[in-house]
Simulated scan of single mutants.
Amino acid sequence: MAQDELTAEELERQKQRRRAAMATPVAEDGDVAFGGMAGIGVLAAVLAALFAFFGFADTAGLESGTASDSADTTVAVETDDGVTDGVDLASMLGTLQQAGFEGLELVADGGVVTARGEVPDQAARAEVLRLIGEQPNVTEVIDRLVVEEVEVPSAAAVVTVSDDEIVLSGTVPSDAAAGELRSFAAANYAPDQLTDQLEVVDGADPATVSLVGSVTNSELGANLQAGLGSLGAFGEATDELVIDADASEEINAVFELEPILFQSGTAIILPDSQATIDEASEILKRFPEANIEIGGHTDSLGPEEANRLLSEARAQAVLQALRDAGVTNQLQAVGYGESELKFPDDKGDTQDKIDARQANRRIEFRTLN
C-alpha cells in the first residue's frame, strides 16, 4: 500500500477527530470560540438569551419617527358607518389653513390622525383638534400639538428729577399711563423743565415706575413722593428719591424774602410776619428729627449788651411762635446781638447804611445735627 493511501480504519478515526473538534470550544487569544455547526448553534442560543434579558425580543410594537415624552391626548370620534380608511389629509390641511393654522403636520393610520406642530394658545389647540375630528372617516385624533410660549413685553417707566428738571423715560403700557405721568410732571415742574422720552408699548404687562434723582427742596420732594403713590396706571411704584435738604437752609431762604418783623426796640412779632412763621413751621414739620438753633441778631446801634439781650428775646419769641404752630423739633434760642453783622452799619444816614442796619436785624436758623 502506498504511503499516501489510508486504510478504512484510519479514515474512520479522522472523521471522529473532526466531529470532536467541531463540538469542542477552541481557545484563541484567551477567548472561547465555537467551531463548526455546533458552535453556531450555541452562539445563537447565547444571543437569544441576551436579547430576551435586555427586552429586545419583541420589536414589533416600536413606532418609527420621534415620539412625544408626554402621554398622547386622544379625542374619540364616532362615525355612522364605522369606516376608518380613506382619510383625505390634503383636504384636511386645506381646512386648517383656511382657519388660519399654518405649518401643521398630519399623519394618518387608517382612521387615526396624529397632529403635530405649534399653536399659539390652548383655544387654538382645541379648535385644531375639533376641525380634524369633523373630517370624514376620522375615528380618532392623537394630539401632539405644542403651545407656543409667547413672551409678553413688560413696561418700565423711570422718572428722573432734580431741583429744576424732570425727565420721563422708559416704556408704558398705554397712552393713559403716559398721560398720567405727564400730569404728574406738570404738577411739580414748569413745561420748559420737562423732557419727555416715554414710549408706549400696547399690551405690555402692568407697568412699573421708578422715581430717582435728588432734590434739595423738601417740599418738592414730599410732593413728588406723594404724587408717586397716587399713580393708578402702574402695578408697582419704586421710590428711590434722595431729598438732600436742610431745614435751616430752606427757612433762611424764606426769611430772605419775608423776614420776621418786630416792633421797634421790642421782641413783639408784627402780625404781618405770621405767614412767615407758618411757612417756617411747615418746613420744620418735614424735618421732625432736625435740631434747630434760632439765632437773633441786631445792628450796631445802641449798647452792645442791650443789643444781645434784645436779640435773645426776639429769638425766644420766634421759638414760642413755632411751638404755638405745632412744631415739635428740638429748638433753642440764642442772642448774638451785634457780634455777627452781615454788613458794616456804623453811624450814618445814607441809604446804604439804613439798608445795612435793616439786613443786620434778623433771625437766622442753623441746623445743629
Results as ranks from 00 to 15, higher is better:
residue 157 A to R: 00
residue 140 E to C: 12
residue 136 P to Y: 07
residue 148 E to H: 06
residue 183 S to L: 09
residue 203 G to R: 10
residue 186 A to H: 05
residue 157 A to C: 08
residue 153 P to S: 11
residue 162 S to W: 09
residue 213 G to N: 04
residue 207 A to L: 03
residue 166 I to K: 08
residue 144 R to E: 15
residue 167 V to W: 03
residue 169 S to L: 10
residue 181 L to Q: 03
residue 168 L to A: 07
residue 159 V to T: 01
residue 195 T to N: 15
residue 174 S to H: 00
residue 185 A to F: 02
residue 202 D to V: 04
residue 130 R to A: 05
residue 187 A to Y: 01
residue 196 D to R: 10
residue 218 S to E: 11
residue 199 E to W: 06
residue 214 S to N: 15
residue 194 L to A: 05
residue 137 N to L: 11
residue 200 V to N: 00
residue 194 L to S: 01
residue 204 A to W: 00
residue 196 D to Q: 08
residue 154 S to M: 09
residue 153 P to N: 12
residue 155 A to Y: 06
residue 133 G to L: 07
residue 213 G to P: 01
residue 127 E to C: 05
residue 150 V to S: 11
residue 145 L to C: 11
residue 125 R to Q: 08
residue 137 N to T: 13
residue 156 A to D: 09
residue 212 V to A: 13
residue 156 A to H: 08
residue 184 F to G: 00
residue 153 P to V: 11
residue 147 V to I: 14
residue 211 L to H: 01
residue 156 A to Y: 06
residue 171 T to G: 03
residue 127 E to P: 03
residue 125 R to Y: 05
residue 165 E to D: 14
residue 191 P to A: 14
residue 175 D to K: 04
residue 196 D to M: 09
residue 211 L to Y: 02
residue 130 R to H: 06
residue 155 A to N: 10
residue 214 S to K: 15
residue 205 D to A: 15
residue 125 R to P: 06
residue 156 A to L: 09
residue 205 D to T: 12
residue 177 A to L: 00
residue 129 L to V: 09
residue 174 S to D: 00
residue 219 E to G: 12
residue 161 V to E: 04
residue 217 N to C: 10
residue 137 N to C: 09
residue 190 A to L: 10
residue 132 I to Q: 01
residue 219 E to P: 06
residue 157 A to W: 00
residue 219 E to F: 14
residue 193 Q to F: 08
residue 150 V to H: 12
residue 126 A to H: 07
residue 169 S to F: 03
residue 146 V to N: 11
residue 138 V to M: 06
residue 142 I to P: 07
residue 145 L to S: 10
residue 178 A to L: 00
residue 142 I to F: 10
residue 195 T to S: 14
residue 126 A to I: 07
residue 174 S to I: 00
residue 153 P to R: 12
residue 129 L to T: 04
residue 130 R to I: 04
residue 211 L to E: 02
residue 178 A to M: 01
residue 207 A to K: 03
residue 149 E to S: 13
residue 173 P to W: 00
residue 170 G to N: 14
residue 146 V to Y: 06
residue 219 E to T: 14
residue 215 V to M: 11
residue 145 L to R: 07
residue 168 L to D: 04
residue 136 P to M: 08
residue 187 A to V: 01
residue 174 S to W: 00
residue 144 R to Q: 15
residue 193 Q to K: 13
residue 143 D to P: 02
residue 187 A to C: 02
residue 197 Q to M: 08
residue 130 R to Q: 05
residue 138 V to Y: 02
residue 156 A to F: 08
residue 174 S to Q: 00
residue 199 E to M: 09
residue 189 Y to V: 07
residue 160 T to H: 05
residue 128 V to Y: 06
residue 203 G to F: 06
residue 134 E to D: 05
residue 158 V to E: 10
residue 183 S to Q: 11
residue 196 D to H: 06
residue 135 Q to R: 13
residue 149 E to G: 11
residue 215 V to L: 13
residue 220 L to K: 15
residue 160 T to L: 05
residue 135 Q to L: 08
residue 204 A to T: 01
residue 191 P to L: 13
